[in-house]
Design a protein around this nucleic acid. Structure first.
Length: 308
DNA sequence: GAAACGTGGGC
DNA sequence: TGCCCAAGTTT
């Protein structure tokens, strides 16, 4: 990395850390999280989910499952129910399995190495490093989309608002400037700036604390000029919605009360979403088969379905 | 490496 | 209104 670039980034870092002291986003969980288990839950909830939504679920989840042992021993159906409304339900299954792994392999202690964290289901490169940074105060780089966007724009003059460096390059840049003592604050600062000012569309460069140091600070003025080629989604649509939407709806219905027959599920789907009964039946057939195969639900002897 | 995976908010 | 997006991971 060029020394001139590194020098500019270090300057930006000082400025951003100072900005963060007064302008950090206010989330209750930033004050109430007390241990690595809670960081694991919080970071998992945060995957592809707006941080403000964590607030709505984390407290309740931790009240029901206050320790990794309790989560490990919980019924899967209770974990799924506690997750309802957060989306990406597989995260709940993975979290449950991860808790069981931690209890069995690590004596209920959350691992503090990247290797062991990555081996946990649902823990990928970002979450593993985020746990190391936020729970263990380790001197490592955790790169999410905010960190990537901020460091990309700060490192080069980007042409469009969606331009973003490869994660490995961002890693290299961030590792080169990791502060020795304020690494948690540094990552929070990057994420807060990326979530509030250095946002993907219509970045607010005019009020950015780094605008005099940033080669991309002219981005704001040409926000609309940078027409981005939107790649058409290849996701298959079922009766007006992607399949995953139907999966979420049907799983929520099955989770809502006790057992449900196939007919009950079809009737609900048809009525609630104004489908022909035959269309509802076909989407329910597909989705129920998937949810069963993936371990979310089970078919009972009497033919009804319930959470696994 | 592309595609799939939920949900609610912003513009 | 409809599309884009958000503290990514898995296959």
């Amino acid at each position: 990395m060029r020394e001139s670039l590194r020098a500019r980034l270090i300057l930006a870092q000082k400025t951003l850390l100072r900005w963060h002291r007064r302008n950090a986003r206010v989330f209750s969980w930033r004050h109430t999280i007390r241990n690595p288990y809670e960081v694991l839950i919080c970071e998992t909830m945060g995957q592809q989910t707006q941080a403000s939504r964590i607030e709505l679920f984390l407290n309740r989840f931790l009240q029901v499952f206050p320790t990794v042992e309790i989560l490990a021993e919980a019924k899967q159906s209770d974990v799924i129910r506690a997750w309802q409304g957060l989306g990406y339900n597989r995260r709940a299954l993975n979290l449950h399995k991860a808790a069981q792994t931690i209890v069995r392999l690590y004596d209920a202690i959350i691992p503090n190495t990247e290797k062991n964290l990555l081996a946990l289901p649902g823990v990928g490169p970002y979450t593993a490093r985020a746990i190391l940074v936020f729970a263990f105060k380790k001197q490592v780089s955790a790169v999410d989309v905010n960190v990537s966007r901020v460091l990309t724009r700060l490192s080069k003059k980007v042409k469009t608002t969606s331009e973003i460096l490869a994660t490995e390059k961002v890693q290299t840049i961030n590792i080169a400037i990791l502060p020795k003592r304020n690494n948690r604050e540094w990552h929070e600062a990057l994420m807060d700036l990326g979530a509030t000012i250095c946002i993907k569309r219509n970045p607010k460069c005019s009020i950015c604390p780094l605008n005099t140091l940033c080669p991309s600070s002219s981005l704001e003025s040409k926000k609309s000029a940078s027409a981005v080629i939107k790649k058409t989604s290849t996701e298959k649509i079922y009766f007006g919605q992607p399949k995953r939407i139907w999966r979420g709806r049907i799983l929520a219905f099955i989770a809502s009360t006790k057992k449900k027959t196939f007919d009950t599920i079809c009737e609900f789907t048809a009525k609630e979403y104004m489908l022909e009964r035959s269309d509802a039946s076909s989407i329910c057939t597909v989705v129920i088969k998937e949810l069963t195969g993936e371990g979310f639900i089970t078919k009972r002897a009497d033919g009804s379905y319930e959470l696994a």
